[in-house]
Write a protein that binds this DNA or RNA. Structure first.
Length: 340
DNA sequence: AAGATGACTTTCTGTCCTTT
DNA sequence: AAAGGACAGAAAGTCATCTT
């Protein structure tokens, strides 16, 4: 049994297919009598128009592409939840690509969106582009030719709508909180410095130490890359070493924190008595272990929703100036007051 | 004779412009 | 208000022509 098409509906309703098309899309003139008849026939035949054919004709699909770098990061789960709510509300279709922080997969994902003739794109780039990669990116984007909203990570030299956070200020405040709690030996689990968010978070940390006259000790800078395993290994090395340890850490992201905690617990250290921390972004699941901890909180769902909002606005007004939205974040201090 | 190759046509299903 | 028909891009189908 072949699929029911607009022609079948038209034939059965005794009208032309263009009339059926107008009913489907609620456009143009259709007498209410004809409309009712066509709707009845569509209902009876359980007819759904082919999105494939519609895309073929319109030279555009109703899909929104979402390209994320870390499917294992709950941050992007929250983003997805915000985006998909708006997708539903606006009767769009979502295509999701995960790049695992590999730039080559950025390109593959963009090619997918190009092949799909996506209507819009929300994009968190996998990393820092070199000249050649930047050129390739520009070529692809030019071909895709649809509105793009950057999310959380910017691309140097590329201007478009975007939703970001104030990484510098949040990191400054997080580090400052540790200082105010009485810590003077404060380390950082550094993020991926090829990403602007990694650099900004490091800069905020450094600036806070500087502001309070504390020395920046390279030995306290753990060169992580936003990933749990790397941080775990580095922390184990550090905890095994003879060196004097920091009494507190600012941790650049939630995944690093998992590695950090694994190492700390493995060495039977107590949080926050032995070692305190403030982490950028919520760490999923910690509430379950009744572990109070401090973190930089941001409304991530809202970031996803806002990105969609920018896209929808761009559809309406293709030529308006680009918009850069900073979603505010605040410090959640939940640990012991003494230590933080 | 059998197989490979290339040129051309048809098919798929909605959309949209023109005509009645 | 409704009908008719061109059209979109890729794949499959058709047929003629060329190569072994």
């Amino acid at each position: 049994m072949s699929e029911i098409t607009i022609n079948d509906i038209a034939k059965e309703a005794g009208v032309g297919k263009s009339t059926v098309s107008r009913v489907i899309n609620g456009s143009g003139y259709v007498s209410s009598e004809t409309r009712k008849k066509i709707e009845k026939v569509m209902e009876e035949n359980n007819y759904f128009p082919s999105a494939v054919a519609r895309s073929l004709s319109k030279q555009e699909s109703d899909t929104i592409g979402l390209i994320i770098p870390e499917a294992n990061n709950p941050f992007f789960g929250e983003i997805l939840s915000g985006v998909s709510q708006s997708i539903d509300e606006n009767d769009l279709t979502l295509i999701l690509c995960n790049t695992a922080n590999e730039i080559e997969k950025d390109f593959r994902s963009l090619q997918v969106m190009l092949r799909q003739r996506s209507k819009g794109l929300i994009f968190t780039p996998a990393g820092n582009y070199n000249k050649k990669q930047f050129k390739k990116l520009n070529n692809l984007i030019e071909k895709i030719n649809c509105p793009i909203v950057l999310l959380d990570r910017s691309i140097e030299g590329f201007t478009t709508d975007g939703v970001y956070s104030d990484n510098f200020t949040s990191s400054y405040l997080a580090t400052e909180a540790l200082i105010k709690a009485g810590h003077s030996r404060i380390g950082i689990i550094q993020g991926d410095l090829s990403l602007s968010i990694g650099r900004e978070r490091l800069a905020g940390y450094k600036k806070a130490l500087e502001a309070y006259g504390l020395e920046i000790n390279d030995h306290y800078i753990v060169p992580g890359n936003f990933d749990a395993d790397t941080t775990y290994n580095l922390m184990i090395d550090l905890l095994n070493s003879e060196a004097e340890l920091p009494t507190a850490f600012f941790i650049s992201n939630n995944l690093s924190c998992i590695g950090f905690l694994r190492a700390v617990f493995e060495k039977n250290l107590k949080i926050p008595e032995d070692i305190a921390f403030v982490v950028f972004d919520k760490v999923a699941g910690q509430e379950l272990f009744n572990m109070k901890y401090s973190y930089v909180e941001r409304d991530v769902r809202k970031m996803g929703k806002k990105a969609m909002e920018l896209l929808l606005k761009r559809f309406e007004h293709p030529d308006k100036p680009y918009e850069k939205v900073i979603i505010d974040s605040k410090l959640k201090l939940l640990g012991s007051e003494l230590y933080i």
